[in-house]
Amino acid sequence: MATERWTNDQLKLAFHLYCQLPFGKLHKGNPDIIRLAQAIERTPSAVAMKLVNFASLDPAITSTGRKGLDGASKLDREIWSEFHADWEGLAVECEILRRGIDLGPTADEADEFLLPEDFTGETRQVVTEQRIKQSFFRRAVLSGYHGRCCMSGVAESRLLIASHIVPWSKDKQNRLNPSNGLCLSAIHDRAFDKGLITLSDDFKVIVSDELKRRDEAFVQTVFLPLEGHCIELPERFVPDAAFIARHRAEEFVDNRKAA
């Protein structure tokens, strides 16, 4: 099998994994790479090499001087484009493919897919698909930020949220687009979601007048010092400028009041 050409499904699974691993973990010793390699009957080295081929197509990687490996195929490029055109559909399809070859959720994902016994039939399917999508988005976003809040630096995974820049409900096409995400602590996620903070086009934090008027010690300690500070940018899936502009125009409370 290892000498045969990669199939479309194998490449989808490889790219699905690529999106969820930090660049520094694209190596043959990574347990997730080993599991995928065994499931598709390829060597860990071959899978790692394919992931680094994908990195050569990633502008967020190449713009930093890292080039990945040359040799990305035409089909690699097609898979790249297909995912970027339909993140949501491909995330679900890849999870189905994973389970079809007994490559279920990773250990840290397993609890996310456990459903109460009273969830049956269509309800169970809907909830399961929702969790699949949320899990993919979370892993893709958090891996880009190396599991650290881009505003506070908090690295406790239980306190981190893959926060949508343009809300989930307002842009179906980009619900799972990792470039529509920020890794934030729960408190920063809440403030961003409610439009109490936003970002400038150059990724600097803008604190709302509402927060600036608060005389609470917590607000003055946690939020006010963020004003004008640039967030820590991810190594890939850099926030899309168009999404940031939409958040600032549509969600930021200062601009909503002006409208």
Rank of each mutant, 00 (worst) to 15 (best):
M1L: 05
T3C: 08
T3S: 08
E4M: 07
T7D: 02
Q10T: 09
D32C: 02
I33S: 01
A37V: 11
R42K: 09
R42A: 07
T43D: 03
A46I: 05
A48M: 06
M49T: 13
L57D: 00
S63C: 06
T64P: 11
D70R: 12
G71N: 03
G71H: 04
G71D: 01
A72T: 07
S73N: 11
W80Y: 05
W80M: 07
D86Q: 10
A91E: 04
E95C: 13
E95F: 10
L97Y: 15
T106Y: 13
P116L: 15
D118H: 11
D118W: 05
G121N: 08
E122D: 13
R124E: 15
Q125A: 15
V126I: 15
Q130L: 13
A140F: 09
Y145V: 04
H146R: 08
G147A: 12
G147Q: 11
L159N: 06
I161S: 08
S163T: 00
I165T: 05
W168Y: 05
K172L: 14
S179A: 10
L184M: 09
H188N: 07
I197V: 01
V205F: 01
I206A: 02
E210N: 08
D215F: 01
T221M: 14
V222S: 09
P234W: 10
I244M: 08
A245G: 14
V253G: 03
R256V: 14
A258C: 05
A259M: 11
